[in-house]
Design a protein around this nucleic acid. Structure first.
Lengths: 251, 251
DNA sequence: CTGACTATGATTGTTTATGATTGTATTTAA
DNA sequence: TTAAATACAATCATAAACAATCATAGTCAG
């Protein structure tokens, strides 16, 4: 591929409103960082892009970020932080499952690890990650639920059962000492169970509002959890109990 | 071979969206590098190509694999109209497959039929339809391709094979009398074939720019098509031929 | 035939694209 | 706030591609 071609393609990517990383581009085009930097310098000189530390973005319109989620969610800040912590647990080369839901969604903002494969049943997350050249995204498929944009049903379940992964990042509506992890709908509970079965380590992402809550469908008992990631306003007595059960609680 | 002839052929190659290398052309035409360079200098002078270090590319952006949004821009009006016609073919209670791609995407704007089920491998379409309470959306799942936001691979294929539907609305990059329906990537061709196998009626959605185009991977031959939906600027001679083959052409 | 003209090939010094390296700046995590 | 990690600019070396030039071999008009 010629330099001109490469630069055209870089522009294409950026014109879509996506940002690009130097590291991602080196992999994608299989050239050195120097070369990519020179490309970006050139493209910036001719006014086509705006360089940033680590890559480049479109000069015009800022992205369609700030989705509906972040504005109306009461615990957006907490979830953001939880997402960041969760992302920091992901290592290069991991194959992971990320559950649907608003909390888990925030992981995508902080994904840094290289060469990872993500399996998810979230349409929103898939849509978001579909632009990341450095991540392989596998969508489970399934029937789309209107409220949560999660995919559920037999297709989803069967796809998940095909995989064995390192880590699963799970969302839930309720976490209680007595009843474990729960959610309001059976469909989603079944899928979450399949996700747990497919993994070696289970991370549960819950903000403070989920503690001591119980919903009708049980996802799993506490002993299936390896980690709980939550925010600082966590209820200490409960947390102590969970840690006594052998669950590591990260904040 | 005369110089003029050689230059014509060089233009042809480049216009197809391919890049050419000086070294490649010397071999192909069995002439010296000097000669090829002189050709390229001439062609660039008359504005037909863009020289690069090592060869030349088309002046306009590489057409082989445009990105999603870019495709959306070109022929947007035509595609919108095509999408509306396609939507009008959908009846209450239908279960249909909608392929990924920019043209098929427009169907979503005009979906009126009640009680329909839509199976699709398009992340964008799924995302779009996820809010529609009156439509059941089943996403096929699969590995997400960055450029087209289509899902492909074995998961996608297997899911599609599970269904029998009334109608399939297919997109493609090339439609030609000689070679049938084609697209640039094998992965997507395989999925499209599965979609054809799962349906009783195949609708091909193509704007005028797709006529007489051929790409590397064959999706199907003409006799598998039941309908072609296109815009008004359709090439009449070709259309006549298709109708003679028993394909209904809607505009 | 001769001489001008053209397309081509061969030669050579120059330019370009690229990768590697190194010290500096910036960002991130503790 | 500080230390570590990451990204950066600047620079150099090299191989490939290039422009410029000259030489050769056809071609055609006179």
């Amino acid at each position: 591929m010629f330099a001109e071609e490469r630069r055209m393609k870089i522009i294409e990517i950026i014109k879509k409103g996506e940002s690009v990383k130097v590291s991602g581009l080196t992999k994608r085009f299989n050239v050195s960082e120097s070369t990519i930097r020179r490309d970006l310098v050139e493209l910036e000189k001719s006014g086509k892009i705006l360089r940033t530390h680590g890559g480049a973005v479109s000069k015009s319109i800022n992205k369609l970020e700030d989705t509906f989620l972040e504005k109306q969610d009461k615990y957006a800040v907490e979830k953001d932080r939880i997402g960041r912590i969760a992302a920091s647990q992901i290592e290069d080369g991991d194959t992971i499952i990320i559950d649907s839901g608003t909390t888990t969604y925030y992981i995508s903002k902080y994904l840094k690890a290289k060469g990872i494969t993500i399996i998810t049943n979230s349409i929103v997350l898939t849509y978001e990650l579909a632009n990341r050249e450095d991540i392989e995204v596998i969508n489970t498929g399934g029937t789309v639920r209107i409220n949560t944009k999660a995919q559920v049903g037999p297709i989803t379940e069967r796809t998940i059962k095909q995989f064995r992964v390192n880590k699963t990042f799970l969302g839930a509506n309720g976490l209680s000492i007595k009843y474990g992890v729960t959610t309001p709908t059976l469909d989603e509970a079944v899928i979450k169970q399949a996700m747990i079965d497919a993994t070696s380590q289970v991370y549960l992402l819950v903000d403070e509002s989920k503690f001591s809550q119980v919903y009708s469908s049980v996802i799993c008992s506490l002993d299936e959890l390896d980690y709980i990631i939550t925010n600082n306003e966590r209820p200490e007595e409960e947390v102590e109990y969970y840690e006594k059960c052998g669950i590591k609680v990260l904040t």
